[in-house]
Design a binder for these strands. Sequence first.
DNA 1: CCGGCTGGATGATCCAGATCAAGTTTTGCG
DNA 2: CGCAAAACTTGATCTGGATCATCCAGCCGG
Lengths: 256, 256
Amino acid sequence: MSSTHQIFDISKFKVSCGNCSLVELCLPWGLKVDDLNELEKIIKRVRPLQRGDYLFHTGDKFQQLYAVRSGAIKAYRTTEEGNEQILGFYLPGELLGLDAIDTEKHVCTTVALETSSFCAVPFTRLEELCQQIPGLQHQIYRLMSRELSSENQSLLLLGKKSAEEKIATFLVNLSSRLHVLGYSSTEFRLPMSRQEIGNYLGLTVETVSRIFSRLQKDKLIVIDRKLIKIVNEHGIRCMCTGNKESSSKSRSATGH
Amino acid sequence: MSSTHQIFDISKFKVSCGNCSLVELCLPWGLKVDDLNELEKIIKRVRPLQRGDYLFHTGDKFQQLYAVRSGAIKAYRTTEEGNEQILGFYLPGELLGLDAIDTEKHVCTTVALETSSFCAVPFTRLEELCQQIPGLQHQIYRLMSRELSSENQSLLLLGKKSAEEKIATFLVNLSSRLHVLGYSSTEFRLPMSRQEIGNYLGLTVETVSRIFSRLQKDKLIVIDRKLIKIVNEHGIRCMCTGNKESSSKSRSATGH
DNA sequence: CCGGCTGGATGATCCAGATCAAGTTTTGCG
DNA sequence: CGCAAAACTTGATCTGGATCATCCAGCCGG
């Protein structure tokens, strides 16, 4: 909250990377204070979106990257036959639009799952700034690399895991991302519907619902509506890899 | 083959981006000649690998990017339980190692499927060069963006498609990548085993084998060992989206 | 407060693809 | 060349998750 940042306080939606608790997520390992000030100058605020509002559509001209400041966003593609494939869910501190740099057109559609706010970073100006601030260039490479690496992880998730493993992995992943943001890692609210979880994981709603019930019966989680409480964190982590040990399960079990 | 490039001709393995037919793949939209010359200076040749040789392992320190010059490479991760998940196959003109920039450690293992050669680009020097050549920086962003976008595509592939659609999509994708390289798009050799195709697509060998047989029976392709001939390109493209029209099929069929 | 609507849960049945089980071909190598 | 291992094919059977069919709980507008 240092007063030197006041000049950027255009309205109540102050954009200030220096103050922003997300800066270490947006820009891993951070930058020097002066560099941050330069960066702040090019960042714009965007009108917050309500649930169901779109940030951008497939085919839209790519001009800026968006960093999620608050809320939750889903990104999806629509297949030729017209059904949607959800590519991912984005939480505060995560960046949207990197995949559009190549073609300069957005390749997916992004929609708010709840009221959400963003920082917008005009990409051309960001590139110019990278020429002045070598550290910034490196941060952008790192961000993109990280995204690549996490998509690799998703390929692994979709390709090999059973429904149960997918759901467990999904919950653990969400949990740890929320934890980084300072929220509880064991008790949180799912910003997306069962339908959306299923779509993302390549499962039907029914299967998602059934597995949630099963996890609850097995005392790994407690669910109430969208509220999840992870009761047995160790157990659910084991489940991500198909590891059936941990506490005794009711179904088919370890022993015999 | 202009003589100005001779100075880089260290051995018979000349590295010359200006001459390299792959430069437009490595660096979409290209660079100015002078810039290319600068780039060439930092690129190193790497001893070619034989089938089964590793380029790098998960956990290895990341120091350079590799561009495939010839051959074919597979990249995979090993899960906690020790089985491998293939992340992708890389052909000439494609870049390896981008996902390691963030952590400075390779996050996957890469192994040659056949005799393969590479250009190695020391990443730190590349970043320095980006500071001098704004266009280069942009090309790197584009490359990473393109990779992100193609991984998105893979998520769609794994998440939603049936076995038949996966295989068809796989073949069409391979075909068009080979076409860009100047090879036939309708007749080519699979550099990977059935097992590896299955692993990549989240299918078993048996399923891959059966579907290959079926595609052949349905007169869409002809297979002889690793050699694939695409006989009905339209048909196989329709199949990628589950579209069962095109020419009359033998199974359950349109008219019968 | 009611009635309709959306999202979620749960049971019954079905089927695509996995698994199991042989064969067969190809390849690599002493 | 000959043999063994590896890669591939094909058939029979099994099963996890899809599909179909209800039903139920919140929620919203009037």
